[in-house]
Amino acid sequence: MSRIDVRKTYKLYINGAFPRSESGRSYEVLDAGGRFAANAALASRKDARDAVVAARSAFKGWSHANAYLRGQIVYRIAEVMESRRAQLVADVMACEGLTEARAKRVLDAAIDRVVWYAGWADKLPAVLGNANAVSGPFFNFSVPEPSGVIAIVAPEASSLLALVSVTIPVVVAGNTCVVVTSRTRPLPAITWAECLATSDLPNGVVNLLTGDHAEIAPWLASHKDVDGIDLSGVEDAALARSLEAAAAVNLKRFARHDAEEDWAVRPNLRRLSRFLETKTILQPIGV
């Protein structure tokens, strides 16, 4: 008689812990073939609120952590992903209906993406900052700094590669974030959260919420302690418009959905620089 396997309970990832939704709600996740795959936590407004609190409290430490350390931690995410290939591939296969070979390629791309971004941690000031040749006896320089707490609505279809592609650049630059994952394909996100949790990433730097975009995202968009919002995963034009308008409440930096974005293509600096501020410092030169 075959052994009865032990199945995973898929929960949220907030402040380094894996709580159920405070609402007690869950929803059925179906695999690509329409069969029951798991119950996922259905995050609520209050879960979003708690995630923002976690992200805010993590921000100071993470944004001021030295860039070498940030780079190493993000690189370690890639290492842990590599060590959990089997489950990540299985999750992607189940959720996206891919063959094992294609799911492996997706995972390869996701891991490589993390590695690519990890290396940027200590290079952003060199590439995005500059000394400014001002008139007069002043030393003037500009450096990039993270914007703060960023809400990210992850794309619906690409459950792992897109999730990684939208989250990691935000984090490697020193921001913390609250990510609303793919609603219909949330399982790779939670497995990925287990990678994050074991990679020395400080608690609260990344928080993952599974659930309904239309339910949670408006609370994040209008949250005054969120500094930016990435609407990459919001395909519905009306929802995108209302989220962007709501984000104006505190002048959140925003990024819109781009229908033409190809997740397989190696990215450029765009996602890294989106949620960065430029700080300009000017000081007299004298004796």
């Binding site: 007069g136 006896p137 002043f138 007299p284 030169i285 004298g286 004796v287």
Partner: peptide, 14 residues
């Protein structure tokens, strides 16, 4: 005493 006097910023003074 002399070193306790506030400094003079050259650029500002000029």
């Amino acid at each position: 005493f002399l070193f306790g006097l506030p400094g003079v910023d050259q650029v500002g003074a000029e």
